[in-house]
């Protein structure tokens, strides 16, 4: 977090510094483009007519020239990008049907277990079906084979976004084909 603050500060200072420099430069500038001491613009052709024809000192007062085709395309694409991102945020905020809060589910895929070097590796997936994210999710597994002491293990998932999931493997000595595996979420932190 400290580094983030430092880097944000650097970016902010760079931005403010650049802005200040530009502003000072503009204040010192004798005149904007098209001022009396600058080269006159060459005449424009039909296609870009009205785009450039700047006269002395008209930058402040004259209305903006019409957009050319390239600028229109840029503006349309830019609008599309912004609308897409804002639309996604609004959908995420108002359009979701998941239950409020966190809803953590654990799926242990015993059928996909693989035996390696005397142990069984059983894939699992922890997913958050709620609207809120969860942090430091602790999931506890218990593997119970008849007549044996139960094997207990746990996993901590640093972060689970809403609609997010994390996958991993549970490693057991007991054969999952003949053992009963239970899992539950023990604790989590609301970020």
């Amino acid at each position: 977090m400290r580094r983030l603050v430092q880097r944000l500060s650097v970016a902010l200072l760079a931005g403010i510094g650049s802005f200040g420099g530009v502003w000072l430069a503009l204040r010192r500038a004798p005149a904007p483009r098209g001022a009396p001491d600058s080269e006159p613009d060459p005449p424009s052709n039909d296609e870009a007519k009205g785009e450039v024809e700047k006269t002395d000192g008209d930058q402040e007062d004259s209305p903006a020239p019409p957009r050319n085709s390239a600028e229109k395309v840029t503006l349309a694409v830019s609008l599309g990008v912004i609308v897409l991102l804002i639309g996604a945020a609004l959908f995420e905020q108002f359009g979701r049907t998941e239950p409020p809060g966190t809803l953590i589910e654990v799926e242990v895929r015993v059928a996909d277990a693989v035996a390696r070097d005397g142990s069984f590796y059983i894939p699992f997936e922890v997913s958050n079906g709620g609207t809120d994210p969860a942090q430091d999710v602790i999931v506890i597994f218990e593997v119970q084979q008849e007549g044996e002491m139960p094997e207990e293990s746990s996993v901590t998932i640093p972060f689970l976004a809403n609609s997010g999931s994390a996958t991993g493997e549970l490693v057991t000595i007991a054969d999952p084909a003949s053992a009963e595996i239970t899992s539950r979420v023990a604790t989590l932190i609301l970020p």
């Binding site: 060459p42 424009s44 052709n45 870009a48 450039v52 050319n68 085709s69 600028e71 395309v73």
Partner: peptide, 21 residues
């Protein structure tokens, strides 16, 4: 756009590409 010194179709697009780049 301010200060364009060339106004052919290609130059308009080239200038816009430069600005965006």
């Amino acid at each position: 756009m301010l200060g364009r010194t060339s106004h052919t179709h290609e130059s308009v697009w080239a200038q816009e590409t430069d600005d965006l780049l």
